[in-house]
Simulated assay, not measured.
Amino acid sequence: MSSGSRYPREVVDPHHHFIDTANNSFQSFFKSLAGDVVFLPSQYTNDVIEPLRKIGVNVYGTVHVEAMPNDGADEVSWVENMPDANYVKAYVASCDLTLDNVEEELVKVVNAAPGKVRGIRWILDCVGKFEGGKTATHPATLRHDGIDYLKSTSFERGLAQLEKHGLSFDLQCAPIQLVESAAALFGKYPSLKVCIDHLGKPRRLLGEDLLEDGSVNANNTLDSAEVEMWRTGMKSMAALPNVYVKLSMMGYAIPGWTRTPERQALLKSLVRETISMFGVRRCMVAWNWHVNGAVSDGDGASNAGPDAVELLEKFMWFFEGYTEEDQAWLFSGTAKEFYRLG
Results as ranks from 00 to 15, higher is better:
Ala239Asp: 11
Leu178Ala: 15
Val12Thr: 03
Tyr60Met: 06
Ser77Cys: 08
Ser332Asp: 11
Arg118Tyr: 03
His138Pro: 14
Val110Asn: 01
Val285Ala: 12
Glu273Ala: 14
Tyr244Ile: 02
Gly251Glu: 00
Pro202Ser: 02
Pro241Trp: 01
Glu156Asn: 03
Pro175Phe: 01
Phe18Ser: 09
Ala183Val: 14
Ile19Lys: 15
Ser2Asp: 06
Ile196Asp: 02
Thr137Gln: 14
Phe29Thr: 07
Arg231Pro: 01
Phe186Ile: 08
Arg6Tyr: 12
Gly61Val: 07
Ala136Cys: 14
Val48Pro: 13
Arg204His: 06
Pro69Thr: 11
Glu310Pro: 07
Val12Ala: 06
Gln177Ile: 10
Val243Met: 05
Thr45Arg: 15
Thr135Asp: 05
His290Glu: 10
Gly233Asp: 11
Val65Ala: 09
Ile120Asp: 13
Ile123Glu: 04
Val63Tyr: 00
Phe318Met: 14
Cys195Phe: 01
Gly233Gln: 03
Lys235Gln: 12
Thr62Cys: 08
Leu106Pro: 05
Leu205Trp: 00
Asp326Arg: 12
Ala140Arg: 10
Pro241Asn: 07
Tyr149Gln: 11
Arg272Leu: 09
Ser77Asp: 06
Pro241Ala: 05
Asn292Leu: 11
Asp299Thr: 13
Leu167Trp: 04
Cys126Tyr: 06
Lys336Thr: 08
Leu270Phe: 03
Phe315Tyr: 15
Gly256Gln: 00
Gly61Thr: 00
Pro139Asp: 12
Glu324Phe: 06
Thr221Asp: 00
Asn292Phe: 10
Arg53Phe: 14
Ala136Trp: 08
Gly342Ser: 15
Gly214Asp: 01
Leu33Trp: 06
Val295Ile: 15
Gly233Cys: 15
Arg340Cys: 07
Ser154His: 03
Glu104Met: 08
Ala304Leu: 04
Ala85Ser: 08
Ala304Trp: 01
Ser276Met: 01
Leu33Tyr: 04
Asn288Leu: 14
Ala238Glu: 03
Met234Tyr: 04
Arg231Trp: 07
Glu262Leu: 00
Gly119His: 05
Ala136Ser: 14
Asp84Ser: 02
Asp13Met: 06
Phe130Ala: 07
Tyr252Lys: 10
Leu247Gly: 11
Asp20Cys: 15
His138Ser: 15
Trp329Val: 05
Leu199Gly: 03
Ala265Lys: 01
Ala239Met: 04
Asp125Arg: 07
Asp13Ile: 01
Asp84Pro: 03
Val63Cys: 04
Ile254Pro: 00
Ile49Met: 15
Ser215Asn: 15
Asp74Cys: 11
Asp326Ala: 12
Leu171Gln: 02
Asn101Phe: 11
Thr137Pro: 14
Tyr252Leu: 13
Ala174Arg: 05
Gly187Met: 04
Val194Trp: 01
Leu162Phe: 05
